[in-house]
């Protein structure tokens, strides 16, 4: 059995676990714990402390694993371990929480430093009324026009599928560029 993996990263409460849950064929193996700090508790009740783990069986011979990283900075020692051997990565950004944009940028830089693999950035929670416009977010996140920055609703399978596909197209394009 051949296996490949992709990593879903981003700040605390960006929607990484939901993203994986939307497409994984198994119940996401999640290492969520109750949140201890009051500030974070105001955002959500539980958070990922080690990793989330989802699976998509491609055929008899190939499985895609999706790993979600813990969003809180104090668990960032897990990031490098999770990034090893990844095909590509997705950076999730909560469009409704501009206070996390700077951290998202920092996570993106950190993962780029770990491995020069293709990546896409997903502007999650675009269905919420206070979501930022993706173009404004692109400026704040200082994303080059060549970087794929895609609107996303992590709870909707179709939206998650399109993000994964865009990453796979980028991986394919990178391979083709490497052949020239």
């Amino acid at each position: 059995m051949q296996t490949v993996k992709m990593v879903v990263t981003g700040p605390f409460s960006a929607g990484k676990t939901e993203f994986i849950r939307s497409v994984s064929e198994i119940d996401v193996v999640s290492t969520e714990r109750k949140i201890s700090t009051a500030a974070e508790k105001a955002v959500k009740e539980a958070t990922t402390v080690a990793m989330d783990f989802g699976r998509i069986t491609v055929d008899d011979d190939l499985v895609l694993y999706l790993f979600g990283t813990p969003g809180q900075k104090r668990f960032d020692f897990m990031w490098e371990i999770l990034s090893e051997g990844m095909l590509g990565f997705i950076v999730m950004v909560d469009s409704t929480r501009p206070e996390t944009f700077r951290e998202a940028r920092s996570i993106l830089e950190t993962f780029r430093a770990y491995a020069p693999t293709p990546y896409v950035v997903a502007a999650n929670k675009q269905d919420k009324k206070d979501a930022w416009d993706p173009e404004d977010m692109r400026h704040v996140l200082r994303l080059d026009s060549k970087v794929k920055f895609l609107p996303c609703i992590a709870t909707e399978k179709s939206s998650v599928k399109s993000i994964l596909l865009e990453l796979l197209y980028s991986i394919l394009a990178e391979m083709e560029r490497g052949e020239k």
Binding site: V4, I56, V58, L168, L172
Partner: peptide, 19 residues
């Protein structure tokens, strides 16, 4: 093998599309 790698990515694309 580069061709096998590309084939693998294409299989992933087909699978994700079919979800």
């Amino acid at each position: 093998d580069r061709d096998e790698q590309k084939s693998l990515v294409n299989r992933l694309i087909s699978r994700i599309r079919s979800l």
